[in-house]
Amino acid sequence: MPSTSSDRAVDNLPGGLKLLIAGGFGVGKTTLVGAVSEIAPLKTEATITEASVGVDDIALTGGKTTTTVALDFGRVSIANEYVLFLFGLPGQERFWFMWDQLCIGALGVIVLVDTRRIEDSFEAVDYFERTGIPFLVAVNEFEGAQFSYTGTEVREALQLRPDVPVVMCDARSRTSAVNVLIALVKHLQTIDYRTVRPAAPELAAHEGSYI
């Protein structure tokens, strides 16, 4: 018997939203997720078949080697209506091909930067400038960092476009981490999507086979 529209659980499902956190290995992505998430960060696995080139029939290669890539994520409920998910992107270079899939449907990206290894962020910045996904740069100010830079210096080092915000943060601090998210959403409210988002993912695109 069909249920009435008012008592169906599906009508109470929240709308999922997605933000991504990019940055080099060990820059504090999961720390940032944990600082704002209403649940302890969860870990899910994407699987990459490493020996699959030219192999179509998986039944014939039952022992095919796959590598798992962990994705850490957390969530923030938005007024019982939406749930905002924060995903840490795998930082290692060999997983960049997954970013295209993870970016589908993302509102925006936080590129987390460690000023001791600023060069780790060059390619992430380049990637998001090319794909047109809105992003900002958050400088994680590690305690005892040997080199401390101003936002302006980081902007110059990364050769950021003027419209890309740079904010300083302490990824361990909830207040600080929340302020990074606020800065990103405010950025989303002001940027010109006609020019900033030339190659954004299409609405109906599916995520692909890895995730």
């Binding site: 659980a9 929240p14 999922g16 939203l17 997605k18 449907g105 993302a106 030339p198 954004a200």
Partner: peptide
């Protein structure tokens, strides 16, 4: 049952 993510449109 499912609910699709909030759509994010191109441009």
């Amino acid at each position: 049952d499912t609910r699709a993510p909030v759509p994010v449109f191109e441009r």
